[in-house]
């Protein structure tokens, strides 16, 4: 464990907590893409299948349980409890355009052709693009609530910090996983446009408005 990865995990945790707080306090899921949350849930389910078979550390297990339960809870809140506030008309990104290419790529490009490894690889590829429905929804509505912007900033930062973690592990531990690193770079790059808007607007106290 290094500082980059720890701070990265804490950013990830903060993002999920921020999202739950937003939903709970505003009693609304307005502006949130249920599809992205479904994809994140799928990422955790396919990645943490070894939750009970492969014990790494108490920290690892606790975080996996939290990520799994919170992502499932978020999907539940969006599609049942606060369904009335779900903006389905703007959450129209076709999930199959992400699921099918990621599944095909995971079958073709992986480290080992075994069910667990292919599912892990699928979750890595899917996580890289899972935010697209949310970013697409913001581009359609043209704005995002401030707390949703903070959520996205924390979520984007987590994988950016993981890239630093992979650099660190490459130089000091001679560990390197090209699949995780390439997908992580793609994932972080997808947030760049949002990072620019967040830093130039939200941090200036303005609401996140996309140029019409």
């Amino acid at each position: 464990m290094n500082a980059f990865r720890l701070v990265g995990d804490l950013c990830h945790l903060a993002a999920i907590v921020l999202l739950l707080l937003k939903i709970w306090k505003s009693r609304s899921v307005a502006g949130l893409s249920g599809k992205s949350q479904i994809l994140f849930g799928l990422v955790f389910v396919t990645r943490y299948l070894d939750l009970v078979t492969n014990f790494v550390s108490p920290y690892n297990t606790i975080m996996k349980v939290f990520f799994l339960s919170s992502s499932i809870a978020t999907v539940y809140l969006i599609y049942t409890k606060f369904k009335a506030t779900y903006d389905g008309n703007h959450d129209t990104f076709r999930m199959e355009f992400l699921l099918i290419p990621c599944a095909l790529l995971a079958i073709v490009v992986n480290h080992e052709f075994s069910p667990m490894e292919i599912l892990w690889t699928f979750s890595i590829y899917l996580e890289a693009v899972a935010i697209l429905p949310q970013l697409f929804m913001i581009s359609k509505t043209g704005e995002a609530e401030t707390i949703t912007s903070h959520y996205l900033f924390a979520l984007g930062s987590y994988r950016g910090l993981y890239i630093m973690n992979w650099l660190y592990r490459y130089y000091y531990e001679n560990n390197f996983d090209v699949i995780a690193v390439v997908a992580g770079i793609v994932q972080t790059v997808l947030y760049c446009d949002f990072f620019y808007l967040y830093i130039t607007k939200v941090l200036q106290g303005k609401k996140l408005q996309l140029p019409a």
Partner: peptide
Amino acid sequence: QDNRSMKDEL
């Protein structure tokens, strides 16, 4: 280069 070790990450 051992890529399996990345499985200790979240």
